[in-house]
């Protein structure tokens, strides 16, 4: 048994954020809520979604692994209106996931389940020396600047405690500098200077579904994966992206 009702807008954003990196996903559902961890096809990035039970208006579930094609879910959620309620319902007999959108009309979709067996993929528990809390819009703007000069970008913490988004091409260079006085910065927790370099296309995919006022928690070290977390309602979404090493 699995039946859960949530506002369509939040679930759409969760699916949008996930489907930028991953083609299919296995939702591990149980009495506490929905979880899913997946790596992108190249194993460069990992996405982890946690939608606790209290996010839902109604939630009843036993333990199931529900494997779905994210592109199909994304298309359906693309048709959802922000004032609609979404009920997710597992049809074990037909091996389908039903999606029922309700407002003025009741619209029913059902998608075939994939045999995406739960990978038991665990998110590695990495300790980071630095954490930046920044508005998503500001970070996305800095990535756009960096993109003008190269296809990768360095995320640096300077010795004097600034957060620097730095990109260098053959002849050109781009740099966005934030410090504790910047309005877009909500907090900088810094213990040491650090620098890691990342593929820009992945960072853009990771931040594509964000709204400009979303608060990103960006965890940084030297030549370490970057961890980027933000909340969608009560749900939490986390990305890990492996660095480029010189």
């Amino acid at each position: 048994m699995f039946k859960a009702t949530i506002n369509a807008k939040d679930f759409k954003k969760i699916i949008d954020a996930t489907s930028n990196l991953v083609d299919e996903i296995c939702f591990e559902v149980d009495e506490n809520g929905i979880k899913a961890n997946a790596m992108d096809p190249s194993h460069v990035a990992l996405v982890s979604v946690n939608i606790p039970k209290d996010t839902f208006e109604e939630y009843i579930s036993d333990v199931h692994d529900i494997g779905v094609d994210l592109e199909a879910l994304k298309k359906i959620m693309g048709r959802a209106k922000s004032n609609e309620k979404l009920t997710l319902e597992l049809d074990e007999e037909k091996n389908k996931l039903n999606l029922i959108l309700k407002n003025d009309a009741v619209r029913k979709f059902s998608v075939s389940l994939y045999d995406v067996s739960s990978t038991n993929l665990k998110v590695p528990d990495i300790e980071y020396p630095n954490e930046v809390m920044i508005k998503a819009g500001a970070f996305v703007e800095a990535l756009k600047d960096a993109e003008l000069v190269n296809d990768h970008v360095s995320l640096k913490i300077s010795e004097d405690g600034k957060f620097i988004i730095f990109s260098k091409g053959d002849i050109n260079q781009s740099e966005t500098i934030y410090d504790n006085n910047s309005e877009s910065i909500l907090d900088l927790k810094i213990t040491e200077s650090s620098k890691s370099t990342f593929n820009l296309a992945y960072l853009k995919d990771i931040t594509k579904a964000t709204s400009s006022d979303d608060i990103l928690h960006i965890y940084l070290g030297s030549d370490m994966p970057v961890k980027i977390e933000y909340n969608i309602g009560n749900a939490k979404i986390l990305f890990l992206l492996a660095p480029r090493i010189e």
């Binding site: 790596m39 190249s42 194993h43 460069v44 990035a45 990992l46 665990k122 590695p124 990495i126 990768h152 370099t197 593929n199 370490m224 994966p225 890990l240 992206l241 492996a242 660095p243 480029r244 090493i245 010189e246």
Partner: peptide, 12 residues
């Protein structure tokens, strides 16, 4: 010009 690491290389 740098090598792209895989995320699973950081799993322990």
């Amino acid at each position: 010009n740098g090598k792209q690491m895989r995320i699973d290389e950081f799993f322990k």
